[in-house]
Write a protein that binds this DNA or RNA. Structure first.
Length: 502
RNA sequence: GGCCCGUUCGUCUAGGGGUUAGGACAGGAGAUUUUCAUUCUUCAAACACGGGUUCGAUUCCCGUACGGGCUACCA
């Protein structure tokens, strides 16, 4: 009996999608997949003045990167309800506005910008509504002839909804329960703008109806206009097929006030965009999760947990597991501050779960650029030694010593191993290292210790010296692992070079 | 200002009329690792406040405070 689940993600291409938007898309996706439904991408580009070049494509690329591809929509193939870009559907909205006009639920308004400014100036808290519309120039106050004349003259006009003076509008929100708003708190919103484009309210309602959307899952910023949408469904006689509403808690700035916004860019010390974005006008670059070295699976998992939880203590979820576990009942009501530390933790966890081969293929390009060509087998083995040190994929840059010897050692670090110089026969040690052909980790360690004892060197001092020689720092993987990786010849070279600088 | 929504450790959250209020991140301590990281153990840390209702409220109701959203021919 209940209709097929069809949800949509409906961003406007007025800037790059930020992570809050991605989360909204994700929740829609999870909900659709859970119930075997459809997930649709609709581009809401009804404001022609705010369009930003390239953002439509950015949205598409983001959804692809993070792995939540719509089954219908702009960039993802047409379903039976194409087109999915509202500017391409422009002509379809007028008929609905006229339907409302004919039914007495809407009217023409000819007020100019100046007219409205004047009304606002003379009436404190002015809003265009049942109490004030008689002061405007509209088809309710003007004579029939004058309205016809103005329309015939192609005068600019908008079509506004005609709201009742005092009526409770009630609806059920899947997250917040019952919500009631009185029409006295609302205003006669413009439905069709003077450029012939619909506003969000009209376009959104019409498209959701036409595209047979079953659930509207969107940000909480839409909650105040939901009653208006309910009224539109009613006045268009679509109330029986009205979708269910779920208004998501907002993502808040971690540092203080307000919802996270596109303008936050890199100001907060972490990216707010999934992909790097270059502003087409200012050329300003904002960093993206992808370029920072986040795995899409990690971002997906992290975002899912911002405002939702599975009700269990499991935190690491694959996309498939999320689909199974997801439910609207477990969406939190309050806004969530973005937790950058947790995002890092998720990413480190996901990198640790990667096989060495998978990690190698993900960082190969960076390694090649930074440190030159590497043999695949060597690269894989080397990464295995440092995998648990990664937070971001880009951290591979910190492990250059795996691919290139240190030419010039840091003097402060050298000063910490300087004491080995006295009565240390570096040539004997280097020769000894060169003779090591055993690749067994324990055997390497044992023979190193033997050398130290036989030559009256403290094991600790020798290990420190070796470490600095091989790594260039006082921390890193175990010595035997490094020797095993580098081989005796390379080990020998590094040791000699390091000692020469002591 | 008006209206709407919200409020559990620093952060993300579980829970819900009677609980030692649970977990995770971050932080502290310790163990392992002759280093560091990992891993493990462990510690500290919360029901915004005031009134009801009730035998009992953090949980239900009402107020207050605080936070957020909306208040455009923007979405």
């Amino acid at each position: 009996m209940s209709k097929k689940v069809r949800v949509r993600f409906a961003p406007s291409p007025t800037g790059p999608l930020h992570i809050g938007g991605v989360r909204t898309a994700l929740y829609n996706y999870l909900f659709a997949k859970k119930y075997g439904g459809d997930f649709i991408l609709r581009i809401e580009d009804t404001d022609q003045n705010r369009l930003v070049q390239g953002t439509e494509n950015y949205i598409i690329e983001t959804l692809k990167w993070i792995g939540i591809e719509p089954n219908e929509g702009v960039g993802f193939g047409d379903g039976q309800f194409a087109p999915y870009r509202q500017s391409d559907r422009k002509d379809s909205y007028r008929q609905y506005a006229e339907q409302l006009l004919n039914a007495g639920f809407a009217y023409y308004a000819f007020d100019t910008e100046t007219d409205l400014e004047q009304l606002k100036a003379t009436h404190p808290n002015f809003k265009y509504d049942a109490n004030t519309r008689e002061q405007g120039k509209n088809s309710l106050t003007l004579s029939k002839e004058e309205v016809a004349q103005r329309l015939a003259n192609n005068e600019h006009y908008v079509i506004r909804i005609k709201l009742p003076l005092d009526e409770d509008v009630k609806f059920h929100d899947e997250i917040r329960g019952h919500v009631t708003v009185n029409t006295s708190q609302m205003d006669d919103k413009v439905l069709l703008k003077s450029d012939g484009m619909p506003t969000y309210h009209l376009a959104n309602v019409c498209d959701d109806y036409v595209m047979q959307i079953s659930h509207v899952i969107r940000g909480e910023e839409w909650l105040p206009s939901a009653p208006l949408h309910v009224l539109l469904y009613r006045y268009l006689d679509w109330e029986n097929s009205m979708p269910k509403f779920a208004h998501l808690p907002l993502l808040l700035k971690p540092d203080g006030n307000g919802k996270l916004s596109k303008r936050d860019g890199d100001r907060l010390g972490f990216p707010v965009f999934p992909l790097e974005w270059t502003d087409p006008i200012s050329n300003e670059i904002s960093s993206g999760y992808k370029q920072k070295g986040y795995l899409p699976e990690s971002v997906l998992n992290m975002l899912a947990f911002l405002g939702w939880n599975p009700g269990t203590e499991q935190e690491i979820f694959s996309k498939e597991e999320l689909i199974v576990a997801f439910s609207i009942e477990h969406i939190h009501k309050a806004g969530a501050k973005f937790d950058f530390e947790k995002a890092k933790w998720f990413n480190a966890e996901y990198i640790k779960k990667l096989s060495n081969e998978a990690l190698a293929s993900l960082v190969k390009e960076t390694v090649t650029t930074k440190f030159g060509n590497q043999d695949d087998v060597y690269l894989t083995k080397a990464l295995g030694l440092v995998k648990e040190r990664f937070v971001f994929l880009n951290d591979v840059e910190l492990f250059g010593y795996l691919f290139q010897p240190t030419e010039k050692y840091d003097v402060t670090i050298l000063s910490k191993i300087n004491n080995i110089k006295e009565n240390f026969n570096v040539d004997a040690f280097a020769d000894f290292l060169l003779q090591q052909t055993n690749t067994d980790l324990i055997a390497i360690e044992t023979s190193l210790k033997e050398f130290a004892t036989n030559n009256n060197i403290k094991v600790g001092d020798m290990m420190k010296f070796l470490r600095v020689s091989l790594v260039g720092e006082l921390s890193g993987p175990t010595i035997p692992e490094l020797i095993q990786l580098f081989g005796s010849e390379e080990t020998n070279k590094r040791v000699k070079n390091c000692f020469s600088q002591l």
